[in-house]
Design a protein around this nucleic acid. Structure first.
Length: 282
DNA sequence: CTTCTCGGACGTTCAACCCT
DNA sequence: GGGTTGAACGTCCGAGAAGT
């Protein structure tokens, strides 16, 4: 069935997803950290790692199961329930996993193309295989205190100006190469330094005080954010407004959100019924 | 200018097929 | 039995249309 394109609310900015069923989080940005405007799977590249145009387009990552709203809108979902998008539109209560239909069985397949298995062994795999993510082999032992470098970790070769500036540069000791880990999980943020007048603690330039390592007891789209004045504010995802506590308005009470809710509330049920019918005859 | 719609590219899954 | 292949199915990017 070609997926019906739907009537869900929209207007999205890119959002991250921590999908992946136990797969170590790849180099995706946590939404609690400022979004750079790049797709979730793209990062600035460290110096010396300027990618070829081909490498620039890294793999798109998908959630395993989009919610029904995102699915109908053909928009990016995430693994959280409610997902960011539903939260944003105030339809969190309608954020449910879509049902995957069962795959057809007994589909006959033509003869396989000859897999030149042995021939392929002759070809230098470097030429055949797609360019691997550029990973620089570092001839320096990883410090024993560091987490093991997994396949998803790419050692960096120095930071170009403006990139990764919120993370401590390597110490510069002779022979030391900064190990690079998924930045949002293991970046070490130095403690705030008291200023000269001893008052407001100041973070080093570029450091963001809201860093919270996983796991954290907040929905993935919020992190506690300590403001310079010492108060805790919710560093919310840009479009998401935390429900105002004072007013009676619930999340999703904005006119736009209400519109969205109303729109999705109607029409969708009948669509779902249709879908169920379709799945039924498999 | 913002928001919505949706075509289609791209990613994921998994049964059929192939190889050892 | 285990690895490989490739089609089915799913996600969601991004351009253009529609709305405000």
């Amino acid at each position: 069935m070609p997926m019906r394109h739907g009537d869900s609310p929209d207007a999205d900015e890119p959002i991250d997803s921590h999908s992946d069923d136990g797969v170590p989080p790849q180099m995706t940005m946590h939404p609690s950290v400022g979004y750079s405007g790049m797709p979730m799977h793209m990062y600035p590249f460290a110096g010396g790692m300027i990618p070829t145009p081909q490498q620039l387009r890294s793999k798109r990552r998908q959630v395993k199961n989009a919610c029904t709203n995102c699915q109908k809108a053909c928009k990016k979902c995430d693994d959280a329930r409610p997902c960011l998008r539903c939260v944003k539109y105030g339809i969190a209560e309608e954020c449910i996993d879509s049902q995957r239909r069962e795959r057809k069985k007994g589909v006959k397949r033509g003869p396989y193309k000859k897999r030149d298995g042995k021939d392929r062994a002759d070809n230098s795999p470097d030429q055949e295989s797609p360019p691997a993510p550029q990973t620089i082999a570092i001839p320096v032992a990883t410090p024993s205190t560091s987490p093991p470098i997994g396949a998803y970790m790419t050692p960096a070769v120095g930071f170009p100006p403006g990139f990764y500036s919120q993370y401590p540069p390597h110490t510069g000791r002779p022979g030391e190469v900064p190990a690079y880990f998924p930045q949002f999980y293991i970046a070490q943020v130095p403690p705030p330094q008291p200023t000269a007048d001893g008052e407001t603690p100041a973070y080093p330039p570029g450091f963001y005080p809201a860093f919270v390592p996983y796991p954290q007891p907040y929905p993935p789209y919020m992190v506690p954010h300590q403001r310079p004045d010492g108060q805790m504010a919710m560093a919310a995802y840009p479009m998401y407004k935390a429900p105002s506590t004072g007013n009676s308005s619930e999340p999703g009470s904005s006119s736009k959100e209400q519109r969205a809710t109303a729109r999705t509330a109607g029409g969708r049920e009948e669509e779902e019924e249709e879908e169920e019918e379709e799945t039924g005859d498999n």
